[in-house]
Design a protein around this nucleic acid. Structure first.
Lengths: 389, 389
DNA sequence: ACCGGTTGCGAAAGCGTTCCCGGTACTTCC
DNA sequence: GGAAGTACCGGGAACGCTTTCGCAACCGGT
């Protein structure tokens, strides 16, 4: 005996097909289609994921409205001190944790900043990230880390992930293969501020944090010259990156200003993949007229070269003096210690986040990007001090 | 001339105080309080944050409902192929990116897994994270990385952040100071699966991924014994961590099984802070009856000891043979190369995520935790091969 | 003509917040 | 004693999405 769920009519009911596996009925009297509720099937289905307390739970417990709870939790005005305390007590009792997703949806901000780095196996980027967190966390922001793994496609994917996550700002360091920054344009269009650091390009108008790469390279190469090197090679990076062009230029200018000849065959291009470093080193040390000095664009490349040199029995620094870039912790551990240009890694992260915050809080309609250039410091170790000199 | 916004009465209007800076009126006829709307003030306020396209935008463009758009975007059934294509086209045209916050709110899942690590300066955890991402990303999950910086309080804070972010699962490796895992219990209560890896404790019933630390330590110490060491020291870790207890036990048993005496004064406890490593090394090498072999609980501690030994002019391995643990890339770079027990780092990450997914998809009401124990491999380098032996 | 069944889509209820508006009750002041 | 002002609180829309369910339109077989 089927009763219409609306008019409780019994006689005017007709079957009206099957819908989603359930019998459908039609009540001719009230012209209404309906199916019968699934009769208490699975009252407690799979409730493995328990209900997390919400402000509504707190409100119910205290018999007040959720607006009041929300106000209380945020120390808003318009709230009685006693009420506030009561809310805070219940919140603690229920172990309430605000739902950041709901918060983000309501406020159109996620309290998250995204960081895209090419890798974090070497210490450079981890240190930058730690610096960034040191500023971001106390400000209530947390950090979503994406690594592009030196892959252009992954970098694009990462931008989409961060876009979907509705991050409030971006810190980015490009891969060596990124030909353009079109995939970052969407952040600009969406009004999401972005600060590039370290690996930047010139063809974009945005805030940047870099070190004085030209100057660092110039210093490093000059140091090699002063230590008696006559044929100085350079492991350069991908030329899409400004950082690599600057270091290359610093190398070139240092040679020229010291009246040394510039030999293109002594410049090798590294694509920043770990394996590539070894190939560069091999190549470099295999040429007939071997260099007696090397300025590498980063410490891993310098260290890789030192390893290969050792295998070949080439003495460092006497037969080959080496200077790296970054002063990663490892450079102090290798034998001999690697002379290198220290970058203020944590400082880079901090500066970048500060720049980002500045841009996020900027209310003027036309924001003027800023470029911060930090200084490098030459750290002299044994890898560059030729004995016979 | 004020008109009541309800009944348009003019005469029965009286002023009724100021509310939030605005004049309030009272209409005696309809017993109604009201204020006047703020008359078009700031039509275009600060719209620096542009509107991101939503499914409603797509729906409007195609004159269909947002339900249909949602279905189309997810390749649902109940959708006409043509409609689906049209939706996809418009989505592409508008550069639509789904709002993960809204998605998460609606579905009560964030497609995010949280990872808590004590640090990521050394290479171990980065490699684990990369392994984890290799499984998580293709499955549509992304990873929220928190580092506790070896601080118990920060670890607690991190659990709260991850709770608020409504992550769908947790991978955790504890600090050396974590006395208990009460702060992780909330995940259990909320039904959020959690897998501990590497730095685990015994006092919790959860899935774990570890390596056979006991066996690794046993192998390492045996190797030292076989290379002629008579007095083998051990830099041990905090005893709240099972991993450290196991390595210590492996060390002890290896000595006992080879009829060597166990000298408690040769065991030094490292709290895992970077500076502490140097203190341990100093202490170890300053004792009058210096050890001739060292098994360190990890590579950084082993390398720190090698550094200190070098400064003191102690020859490695002849005067002090050293074995580390983990096979971080640096251990191959130091001089002499560090003998160590290789951990399958990426494998640990992958296994942990797989275990997590297994638990997330588990529908049975009582999940049985699993512990995966991976194998270590002894990598012999020069730091342990005494010449005169 | 009617029933059984299929296909495709729309309406609307949530998800957990925030925040704008009203509204009540009370105090203060002329 | 009435108007002005203060202190608090509740209702409800909005954020962008998923999902359930209702319903129209159709088709084929009796």
């Amino acid at each position: 005996m089927i009763k219409c769920v609306k008019c409780s009519e019994v006689d005017a009911i007709a079957k009206a097909g099957i819908i989603r596996g359930k019998q459908r009925y039609y009540c001719a009297r009230c012209d209404y289609y309906f199916t019968l509720p699934a009769a208490e099937i699975s009252i407690a289905t799979n409730s493995s994921r328990k209900h997390q307390p919400t402000i509504v739970d707190i409100a119910r417990e205290l018999q007040i409205s959720k607006s009041t709870v929300s106000r209380a939790l945020h120390g808003h005005a318009d709230i009685n001190e006693e009420t506030r305390k009561a809310v805070l007590d219940v919140a603690k009792k229920l172990d309430y944790q605000p739902n950041l997703l709901a918060y983000g949806l309501a406020k159109s901000k996620s309290l998250t900043i995204g960081i895209i780095v090419p890798e974090f196996i070497n210490s450079f980027f981890p240190y930058v990230i730690i610096g960034a967190q040191e500023i971001a966390n106390p400000a209530g922001y947390h950090v979503l880390i994406c690594q592009s793994n030196e892959s252009y496609q992954t970098e694009i994917d990462n931008t989409n992930v961060l876009m979907s996550s509705r991050v409030d700002g971006i810190l980015a360091s490009l891969t060596g293969k990124t030909p353009n920054v079109d995939h970052f344009k969407k952040f600009e269009r969406a009004g999401i501020p972005i600060v590039y650091f370290n690996r930047v390009t010139t063809d974009v108008c945005a805030s940047k944090v870099i070190v004085d790469d030209y100057d660092g390279a110039y210093q490093g190469v000059t140091h090699l010259i002063q230590n008696g090197c006559k044929r100085i090679a350079h492991i350069a990076g991908p030329q899409n990156l400004q950082i690599c062009r600057d270091r290359l230029q610093g190398y070139k200018d240092a040679l020229l200003h010291h009246d040394m000849e510039l030999n293109e065959s002594l410049i090798i291009y590294h694509d920043l993949n770990p394996e590539s470093a070894l190939h560069c080193a091999q190549h470099l040390l295999d040429v007939p007229d071997r260099p007696d000095g090397l300025f590498a664009l980063n410490d891993p490349a310098a260290i890789a070269t030192m390893q290969v040199a050792k295998e070949k029995g080439i003495r460092i620094p006497d037969e080959l003096a080496v200077v790296g870039f970054s002063n990663e912790p490892t450079s102090a551990l290798v034998e001999p210690g690697l002379t290198t240009l220290a970058q203020p890694m944590a400082e880079i992260g901090k500066t970048a986040v500060n720049l980002l915050f500045k841009q996020m809080n900027d209310t003027s309609d036309c924001f003027i990007p800023e470029t911060k250039i930090l200084k490098t410091t030459l750290i002299v170790r044994k890898s560059s001090l030729k004995r016979q000199f």
